[in-house]
């Protein structure tokens, strides 16, 4: 890892900015690299007061596994939702679920909420003020505790391991 310098408050953000700049320009010419580096240093310096400190990623390899799993689940979830929409009888049993959170930091909760929205027939609807409960709307569920268990085992526990909290 690159150490944090006074002129480089967020190394990861800087690397990301440079990569995005080069992808947008579709070239790795010297001029573009220099301009991208300049932007990657200036933008974090200007915006650093807006950022709240967030937990760092402790285990990147688990993150890769998590992303692959979520990508697979997105495809499965889409097929399921398509089946439900195309079902002519339309026998659905929607429900609001109160999901008790184990995560505490905001950034992992954001990732969890996004995952829930993109995956199995559920949309995250509200995070309560005390950050302990996430309100979820499910399109079709018979067994609410089972849904909660699935989310906890499949998404929240891996996220806890990744961020080590």
């Amino acid at each position: 890892m690159i150490p944090v310098q006074p002129w480089l408050p967020m190394p990861l953000l800087s690397v990301l900015l440079l990569a995005v700049w080069l992808m947008l320009q579709q070239s790795v010419a010297l001029g573009q690299v220099l301009l991208g580096t300049l932007l990657a240093i200036v933008i974090p310096l200007v915006t650093r007061h807006f950022w709240e400190p967030q937990p760092t990623i402790k285990r990147p390899w688990l993150l890769v596994r998590y992303v692959l799993r979520v990508l697979g689940d997105i495809i499965v979830a889409n097929l399921e939702v398509s089946k439900l929409i195309l079902d002519p009888r339309g026998r659905m049993k929607p429900a609001f679920i109160e999901y008790p959170l184990e995560l505490e930091e905001l950034f992992p909760i954001t990732i969890l909420a996004s995952t829930i929205t993109l995956t199995p027939g559920t949309v995250s609807a509200n995070l309560r003020q005390d950050r302990r409960t996430l309100l979820i709307h499910a399109l079709n569920t018979d067994d609410i505790p089972a849904t909660i268990d699935t989310i906890r085992e499949r998404y929240e526990r891996p996220l806890k391991e990744i961020f080590g909290c």
Binding site: A77, I85, T117, L118, V123
Partner: peptide, 15 residues
């Protein structure tokens, strides 16, 4: 085609 707003939200966001 779905019946209420919360159910309609599922179609566009995922598919």
């Amino acid at each position: 085609h779905l019946r209420d707003f919360y159910m309609r939200l599922h179609g566009p966001t995922k598919t």
